[in-house]
Write a protein that binds this DNA or RNA. Sequence first.
DNA 1: GACCGGATGATTGTTGACAATAATATTGCC
DNA 2: GGCAATATTATTGTCAACAATCATCCGGTC
Lengths: 226, 226
Amino acid sequence: MAEALAQTYTRADEAFDCLQTAIVKGDLAPGEKIGEVELCSRFQLTRGPLREALGRLESRGLLVRRPHAGVKVVSVSAEELMELYRIRETMEGLAARQAADRMTDEEIADLHATLDSHETMIEQAQGQAYYQAEGDYDFHHRIATGSRNTKLAQMLLGDLYYMVRMYRYRLSTSSGRPHMALGEHRRIAEAIAQRDGELAEFLMKRHINAARQNIEKKIQEGELTI
Amino acid sequence: MAEALAQTYTRADEAFDCLQTAIVKGDLAPGEKIGEVELCSRFQLTRGPLREALGRLESRGLLVRRPHAGVKVVSVSAEELMELYRIRETMEGLAARQAADRMTDEEIADLHATLDSHETMIEQAQGQAYYQAEGDYDFHHRIATGSRNTKLAQMLLGDLYYMVRMYRYRLSTSSGRPHMALGEHRRIAEAIAQRDGELAEFLMKRHINAARQNIEKKIQEGELTI
DNA sequence: GACCGGATGATTGTTGACAATAATATTGCC
DNA sequence: GGCAATATTATTGTCAACAATCATCCGGTC
């Protein structure tokens, strides 16, 4: 995702993006220990930028790095994944509340338009997987930025989402949820449109809580191995 | 703060700590633009480790770095500082709730002991400044780790606190608050001891909200310039 | 006199070689 | 045969030189 201002795209940024998507997509398996030189040859990079990228990834919690012992992709347990959702619940609730106060009318219109496109997307191609992978985060993305809370958006978009995405990528289709989720999104958007911050917060928290329970159930049923 | 396991303390870590404390203490003024070579000579470092530290600091949001244009310490506006407190409110509320369920009895005993030492500290030397700068965070630190929520603790301790500390450092003494704050801490600790998560969450949110309002008032009265 | 274009200078980004450290394998001893 | 201490090796951490990029300054032109 290219930021609006056309900054110089340095090798370190490239390395960072490469590794990040590789981790999210699972090309670098969790728990896998891997050396720097191997990473260099695999991603056609030199060690300088790579190391800088590794440092950034480490401070974001996507990998751990022990001196003289290589880097290792973090492996998140089922409980930790649930904890991630609990954090999301409170933080996105806050984001929704602030967004209700601060989003412009245009942004709210865009939000509704986004949901319309999601609806057709789901119907057309039964594109449940796509909806989960991209569309869902599109919605949450807009609310995070709409909160006008720089640090909150940064933490949500920069830290949490990549982590959650990493574990959502493999389960992709979660059966009935997309339709449910869309309805929940709609209601949140309505609350924001009515500038009802409290309601928006409540609905958002319930929405994420439902998603968490859905995953929890699947894990317990053994449909989903972590 | 030396972590339990005696890891090799690399130059990059050193650079990171140096710069971090320099930013927090205000030796590197917010908004100040500064070159890499000057930073090297000032902190007796070489550019390699320095750059790695800069990358980490950047992803933590303590400084911004435009390619070929130098690094700049972030300058947080009064509103942004308030937003930080709003984030803390929800996140630490969650931490307190989880801590009430998950802290061991020993940890709770330690928590009370910590508060006792804070009390004597405040009385003895009228050490309000010290209490604010270190002691307060000691308490919050314990609750964050007591939540047993790795990511939550990481975000609180790694990202938010340094940012808040940076702006708390200069106001240091906030008159009557230390005694008030201690009382609030006490009540939170009691709620945790009684394993009353809901109450702990409520009290923690109110505690941080009070701190926020206190700062907000000072800013409006012109006692505090940001 | 103001604005635009190009040259200069400084600063950052990148690279490859070197040194230090820790993990591993080997050898000797119990 | 098992354990421990040592030597080796591979990996990471560090460094200094090089190249690319941007900001600034100067001169010319409108």
